[in-house]
């Protein structure tokens, strides 16, 4: 019996493990916002939804009540790289809340000049044919603050995970949110 079990294990333990993990990946893909590249279902290169193409964008309200856009990517990549990578691999509200708290407690510096996307205003389009600039509403007019060792502090912050989508026919790349946003509010 033992010998037969051992032989069975030697032949089928690893293949069964591989298949179980692949099935588990399908479960997590169906029930959570996980990148198809992750979870070991061998989905890498099958879609553009890799964690590297996911990103977190943030906005906040300064202590004086000014609504601002926040540039948080460098700070997250340098000081919270593991958490940032983890939330891009698979979004959970707990992880996004942690990032919202980090962003909310950060110190910021005003970035001079227009936001980087302003350089591409002529090329921006809305996927549904709406006016892209209207879709931005007042966001383009808001000052941009960089998460760094600055003097500015936030009253509240809101962060959200995004991913890219690509249409090869029109060579058009656009952004879509992943899951719900998370907020951090000092007044609550």
């Amino acid at each position: 019996m033992n010998r037969r079990l051992q032989e069975f294990g030697q032949r089928y333990l690893v293949p069964l493990l591989v298949c179980s993990v692949v099935i588990t990946q399908q479960f997590f893909l169906a029930t959570s916002e996980m990148s198809t590249w992750k979870g070991s279902g061998f989905g890498m290169f099958g879609t553009i939804d890799s964690p590297r193409e996911r990103f977190i964008a943030a906005e906040g309200i300064l202590e004086d009540g000014t609504h601002v856009n926040l540039d948080i990517t460098d700070a997250l990549e340098e000081s919270y790289s593991r958490l940032y990578w983890s939330v891009r691999c698979r979004l959970t509200s707990a992880k996004l809340n942690s990032i919202a708290a980090i962003v909310g407690n950060g110190a910021y510096d005003l970035e001079e000049g227009p936001p980087p996307v302003a350089a591409y205003l002529q090329r921006l389009e809305h996927r549904d044919g709406d006016d892209a600039l209207e879709a931005y509403d007042d966001q383009l007019r808001r000052p941009l603050y960089k998460f760094w060792q600055g003097d500015a502090r936030l009253k509240s912050a809101r962060v959200r995970l995004w991913k890219l989508t690509f249409d090869p026919e029109e060579e058009f790349i656009w952004v879509n949110p992943v899951g719900e946003a998370a907020s951090y509010d000092f007044t609550s």
Binding site: A135, W162, I173, W174
Partner: peptide
Amino acid sequence: AAVDALKTLPVEGVGVALR
């Protein structure tokens, strides 16, 4: 650079035509 810029201020459905 256009894709990176898009990431700094994302708006749902808004994108850029690549060359």
